[in-house]
Each structure stands twice: as structure tokens, then as C-alpha cells.
């Protein structure tokens, strides 16, 4: 499912703006997004598309991004993963700040197919996530070999990335979210 956040802002939340500013606006948009996400199955991946959003301030980033991720983590709710698309510098400053504040992270997909892990992640998490994203799928032993680490050290990091919905399981392998294997 792809959710156009700009369309949610203007149509579902009925606010005639191009920018995500003020906490009340952010809360209204988040409630609309949550309603859309509630119809998804547990293994679905949802894409939030910010292409038609001008700028975003800290309060809105806290409401639309952080609270959404916190709620998903708390409830173990649907969907299984959220992918962020159409993120620009106009959004990133606020998003990075609120993610760090809450100890959260998310995956941003760019139009050219590149992806970036944004927010509070350890160096180990970042290295392993980048390897998985570059290759598509990975077995734990292969990932340990390619990252010059022990399998016993790699597994808990991968489990943490799964818990945080930054990677997904694909059979015996670990795979990027939002990308078909």
C-alpha cells in the first residue's frame, strides 16, 4: 500500500496546506494514516510517500513519523514494515532529530532505487543493514563472513533490525524491506 501523505493532508485531514507544520496538523494527519494502515495484513509493507509535502517541522515530524513508529512498535501492529519515500532535505532535518530523540530509525527509499537508514542505529546495525540492502538477501553465515564478524555476534544485531522493522525475514535469509526478493 502506498499512502500519499500530501493527499492525506489536503483531503483526508481536510487541511488546505502544502507543509507539515504544527503539532495539531501532524496529529490529524497521523490519525488518518493510522486509519489507512489498520486495513493492512500483518505481513504487508506500507510506503509513506512525502513527495507532495513541502517542509516539515519538528512537531509534525514527532507526530507523523515518531508517534507512528512508536505505536507500531508498541502494539506490534500492522503493517509489518513502513517504508518512507519522497524524503528530501526539507524533511530530513526534523525527521532525524525526532528519531534520535526517541531512539528510532527508519528506511528511506529514493526515486533512483537507493535507500538510506536514518535515525538512531549502531555502527553494527548500519554495516549489516547496508550489506543486506546491497545484495538483496543474506544468510547469517554469509553475512558474518562478508562483514568480518562471527555469526554469533551478527545474529542478535539482525534480530534487532527485524524487531525494529528495518529488515524482514525471507525464509532462512534476511532481506531489505519494501523490496521484492
Amino acid at each position: 500500500m502506498r499512502i500519499d501523505v500530501g493527499s492525506v493532508l489536503r483531503h483526508s485531514a481536510n487541511l488546505p496546506y502544502a507543509d507539515l507544520v504544527t503539532r495539531s496538523t501532524g496529529a490529524a494527519v497521523r490519525r488518518c494514516i493510522e486509519a489507512e494502515l489498520s486495513s493492512l495484513a500483518h505481513d504487508d509493507v506500507a510506503t509513506l510517500d512525502f513527495t507532495h509535502i513541502g517542509m516539515m517541522d519538528y512537531s509534525c515530524a514527532d507526530e507523523v513519523v515518531a508517534k507512528l513508529l512508536l505505536d507500531l512498535a508498541r502494539r506490534g501492529g500492522r503493517p509489518s514494515s513502513l517504508v518512507f519515500h519522497g524524503i528530501t532535505d526539507a524533511h530530513l532535518e526534523a525527521i532525524e532529530d525526532v528519531l534520535l530523540h526517541h531512539g528510532l530509525a527508519l528506511v528511506v527509499h529514493f526515486a533512483d532505487g537507493a535507500a538510506r537508514l536514518v535515525g538512531a542505529v549502531s555502527e553494527d546495525e548500519r554495516v549489516l543493514w547496508q550489506l543486506v540492502h546491497a545484495r538483496g538477501t543474506y544468510l547469517v553465515d554469509d553475512l558474518a563472513r562478508d562483514s568480518a564478524r562471527n555469526s554469533a555476534d551478527v545474529l542478535p544485531v539482525l534480530e534487532a533490525l527485524l524487531d525494529r522493522r528495518l529488515l524482514r525475514r525471507d525464509g532462512f535469509t534476511f532481506a531489505p524491506i519494501g523490496v521484492a526478493s
Binding site: 517542509m55 516539515m56 517541522d57 519538528y58 512537531s59 532535505d89 530530513l92 532535518e93
Partner: peptide, 17 residues
């Protein structure tokens, strides 16, 4: 740089809020 201009508008928005 452009990131500074974005931050400027955000700071203004937060101050008004």
C-alpha cells in the same frame, strides 16, 4: 546552504507554535 533555509523556516514555525 539549502538545508539552513529549511531549518530557518522550521525554527520560525516552532517559535510561533
Amino acid at each position: 546552504i539549502s538545508r539552513a533555509t529549511m531549518g530557518f523556516t522550521m525554527a520560525l514555525s516552532e517559535a510561533c507554535q
